[in-house]
Design a protein around this nucleic acid. Structure first.
Length: 113
DNA sequence: AGAATTAAACGTCACAGAGT
DNA sequence: ACTCTGTGACGTTTAATTCT
């Protein structure tokens, strides 16, 4: 809810990766800058326009909230799948190593006979 | 018990790419 | 050209765990 990146005083003393990233990807949109300045819309339908705007914003936020939840759910599921796969492959690997070992033993036995 | 630390979940923003 | 959707990155909140 709180807007933490509303202020930038152009002091990029050290060019840490984080700061650089912020500059690149956390740059406020022109729309946000305008609305921060208070004069969001160029006068025209007045209140109606603004109400419509904030209604649309609420809708968008709500949808994005749900999208983010879904996205995280899928990601977790995906990671779980990968972990399962790792477990399966590790077991296969173990089994193959064991098989190889016993085949080697058999081979040595027969060679010595 | 409660302060400090850590991990997990969340909401928001910006962006890319797909669809219209 | 515009809208919609999915996602990475970030800061915040909340729940769980550890330390004193």
């Amino acid at each position: 809810m709180t807007d933490t990146n509303s202020d930038d005083t152009m002091s990029d003393d050290e060019s840490s990766p984080k700061k650089r990233r912020d500059l690149l990807t956390r740059r406020p949109s022109y729309r946000k800058i305008l609305s921060d300045l208070g004069g969001a819309e160029i006068v025209m339908g007045g209140n109606v326009q603004l109400e419509d705007q904030s209604r649309k914003r609420e809708m968008r936020l709500q949808k994005n909230r749900e999208a983010a939840r879904e996205c995280r759910r899928k990601k977790k599921e995906y990671i779980k799948c990968l972990e399962n796969r790792v477990a399966v492959l590790e077991n296969q690997n173990k089994a193959l190593i064991e098989e190889l070992k016993s085949l080697k033993e058999l081979y040595c036995q027969q060679k010595n006979d």
